[in-house]
């Protein structure tokens, strides 16, 4: 008698559990892009292109400039949960993937064979700020084609705290180049 009562209850519980599983949203859904970040992606004119090694000395805080480069030159190019990446000058920094034997390195986007001075001179940190001047809390990797080794054109303003040693830029517009 007891068994007869328990079995339908168990079956109902199992079915209910199956139903819940089936209605769960797929876990692989991509997170929505922050509209403030999405709005930055546009075509940027290539006129008056500056180069990172020179621009870091010739431009002061709040100056606007347009740069072109690849996302490369460091082990960690993106910061998880923060709109920030490292841009490397293509004439100054050589990523491992462009070395004669790219298989020597597990991280083809860094420039471990370049001298430290070249890596520092040839890279800039690009960040996307909100209205309060804080970095927007969303990682940029994978957003609208921004990947390691992507070729990118950036219109930016030199950030407060930037100097000849640490070149920090606030992105005003971004364009992923083919």
């Amino acid at each position: 008698m007891k068994t007869k009562t328990i079995l339908p209850v168990l079956a109902a519980l199992l079915l209910a559990a199956c139903g819940k599983e089936a209605s769960a949203p797929p876990s692989s859904a991509a997170p929505e892009i922050d509209p403030r970040i999405d709005a930055l992606f546009m075509e940027i004119s290539a006129e008056k292109l500056a180069k990172i090694p020179e621009a870091r000395h010739s431009h002061s805080v709040k100056d606007e400039l347009v740069l072109e480069g690849r996302i490369m030159g460091a082990m960690d190019l993106f910061v998880d949960g923060h709109a920030m990446f490292v841009l490397g000058d293509m004439e100054t920094v050589t990523p491992c993937i462009d070395m004669p034997d790219p298989s020597h390195c597990d991280t083809p986007w860094d420039a471990c064979c370049d001298p430290k001075e070249l890596r520092i001179q040839g890279t800039a940190t690009v960040q996307v700020l909100d209205e309060q001047g804080q970095v927007i809390p969303q990682g940029l990797e994978g957003v609208n084609g921004l990947e390691k080794l992507s070729k990118v054109r950036v219109k930016a303003q030199v950030a407060a705290g930037s100097d000849g040693e640490a070149f920090i830029l606030n992105a005003l517009a971004l364009q992923v180049l083919p």
């Binding site: 960690d76 923060h82 920030m84 490292v86 430290k116 890596r119 940190t125 960040q127 640490a166 070149f167």
Partner: peptide
Amino acid sequence: HREVKLFSTRRRNLE
């Protein structure tokens, strides 16, 4: 520790 991580990415010259 997010602010420290942001600092290290901004101050790339310090490696």
